[in-house]
Computed example of a mutant assay.
Amino acid sequence: MKRLLLCLTLLLTACGPLVPAQGSALEPAQDLGTLPAAALKYQHLLLRSAQANWGLDAPVALLAAQVHQESRWRPDAESPVGAQGLAQFMPATAAWMAELYAEPLGANQPQDPAWALQALVLYDRWLYLRIEAASTCQQLAMTLAAYNGGLTWVRRDQALAAGAGADPGTWFGSVEAYTQRSESARRENRAYVQQIVRRWQPLYQSWGPAACEGKF
């Protein structure tokens, strides 16, 4: 139990997977409009996991875009800080997920594509259910921000927005403008959400439902 509480504390504060900067060795440049060959290879795995855990209206296009942003669909991807696999889980996050979802996930295997995709879907769902927002679009945007930077930071940002008279339930144009994170962490976190929703998601719209359509 103590181990579980420790991992949960880490997860809520700083265990969210970190995304390397664009152009790093982990994330080579990708032409807009081109899907990595591996994306098609793992499409069925993602679709099956998404619908099993989110239902038939699962935001498949958004989830696929998130995998694209995290690893470019490379199961062997590893960031300079130690994040691994398709979902780029940090070791503590992967261990916590394997313990929390022992039955569906089984042994901790972040570099196994099936494990990583199901874990990403489950983690996103876990975060989504703990975020209050004005709409599904805004809730999913905050879910992405929490995946990248931690749920505690999203809640702090919401509180800052509310304190400034802004809408704490709206990410775009509201909560995203408020934070006490370092400048580098702020830039990375806000770019993470924008890249997934606006840049990569359109590439995967044929896979299934998208999020925030018509919002930009």
Rank of each mutant, 00 (worst) to 15 (best):
S184P: 01
Q205N: 05
Y178T: 09
E132G: 14
D57T: 15
C137T: 06
Q194A: 04
H44I: 11
A114Y: 04
E78M: 15
C137N: 03
A37P: 12
N53E: 13
A133Q: 04
Y128R: 05
A177D: 09
A39C: 10
G149A: 10
V121M: 00
L40H: 09
Y101G: 12
C7R: 15
A65L: 07
P36Q: 13
A64Q: 04
P104D: 08
A191Y: 00
D57C: 06
S71V: 13
E132T: 15
S24C: 10
V175C: 01
L35M: 13
M97P: 06
D31Y: 07
Q43Y: 04
P91L: 05
Q66V: 07
A38S: 15
A146K: 02
A146F: 02
A38F: 08
P91D: 11
Q109L: 12
P36I: 15
L11F: 14
E176Y: 00
L47N: 02
L151H: 02
M97S: 10
E99F: 04
L46T: 07
L100C: 08
L86Q: 03
V175Y: 02
A77L: 03
S182H: 02
L63M: 11
Y147P: 00
W126V: 14
A166T: 06
W200A: 01
L18T: 10
L140M: 08
L45A: 11
C15H: 09
L105T: 03
L127K: 03
A177G: 05
Q69L: 12
R156I: 08
D124Q: 13
L140T: 14
A164W: 04
A95S: 03
P75W: 02
T9R: 00
L35K: 11
G214N: 14
R3M: 09
A50D: 05
A107M: 06
Q109G: 04
P113T: 14
Q138V: 06
Y204Q: 02
P91H: 10
Q138D: 15
R187G: 01
G173Q: 14
Q43C: 03
V154R: 02
P80F: 07
A211C: 15
Q205K: 08
M1T: 12
R130H: 14
D31C: 10
C212I: 05
L151G: 01
T152Q: 08
